[in-house]
């Protein structure tokens, strides 16, 4: 199916004639959305692995021994709130308000950093207690799943830094706005994955 047909069917009839234009938001965002959908499959395989191995402790430590729900609640709060602050940054970008955009992006970055630090501390703590990635099939699956999510958060923060450099250099241009919209999709997607992680791994783990 040709690009024009896709645009037409998706309702993008307004700018089919601009096909030679090298970056317009609709196609870029749809493409990025499809990347995110493929990332969903990556996480689905990790969740499936985790579910299958959720009872394989090899006689070692179980999640109920180690998980601290108060700690996880704070972690979750940080990430949830960062989803909200990213939304506020997007509003700043739409209003061409540089101060608002950078301020909220800064807060989002800090919240992401807080989340990641807590996760790393947790990994360190668990490994120290004797539940490292090699301890049992369960812990391998745990570190693979939660670690992959953490890596995504790290990538999102790295991207945020690069984007802020772009914005400081060129201002809130149409291209930077598209990039910001993609990062916004990515960041909210990570929040959605975390909802599944805290429900399936942490809450069900201590039940």
């Amino acid at each position: 199916m040709s690009t024009i047909e896709i645009q037409h069917e998706a309702g993008y009839t307004g700018y089919v004639s601009e096909e030679h234009h090298h970056d317009y938001a609709g196609d870029t965002l749809l493409g990025f959305w499809i990347y995110i959908m493929s990332d969903c499959i990556l996480f689905a395989t990790l969740f499936a692995t985790y579910a299958v191995l959720s009872g394989s402790f090899a006689g070692g430590l179980t999640p109920a021994d180690l998980f601290d729900l108060n700690f996880v609640a704070v972690e979750t709060g940080l990430l949830l709130f960062s989803s909200f602050t990213f939304g506020m940054a997007m509003l700043g970008a739409q209003q061409k308000n540089m101060t608002q955009l950078l301020l909220w992006l800064g807060i989002t970055f800090a919240l992401g950093g807080g989340f990641l630090s807590m996760e790393l501390y947790e990994f360190y703590h668990f490994s120290h207690e004797g539940a490292g990635p090699t301890s049992s099939a369960y812990w391998s699956a745990f570190y693979a799943l939660v670690g992959t999510h953490g890596l995504h958060v790290f990538a999102g923060m790295f991207w945020m830094v690069i984007l802020v450099i772009h914005i400081l250099k060129d201002g809130i241009t149409a291209e930077n706005h598209t990039r910001l919209s993609c990062l916004s999709l990515f960041w909210h997607f990570l929040d959605i994955i975390w909802i599944c992680v805290f429900s399936m791994v942490y809450l069900m783990g201590v039940m």
Binding site: G11, G14, Y24, A25, W33, G87
Partner: peptide, 16 residues
Amino acid sequence: ATQTHGGAAHGSVKEY
């Protein structure tokens, strides 16, 4: 106008 397409429509403070 193109930026309202493809999955990132505009929001509002109230919505967030």
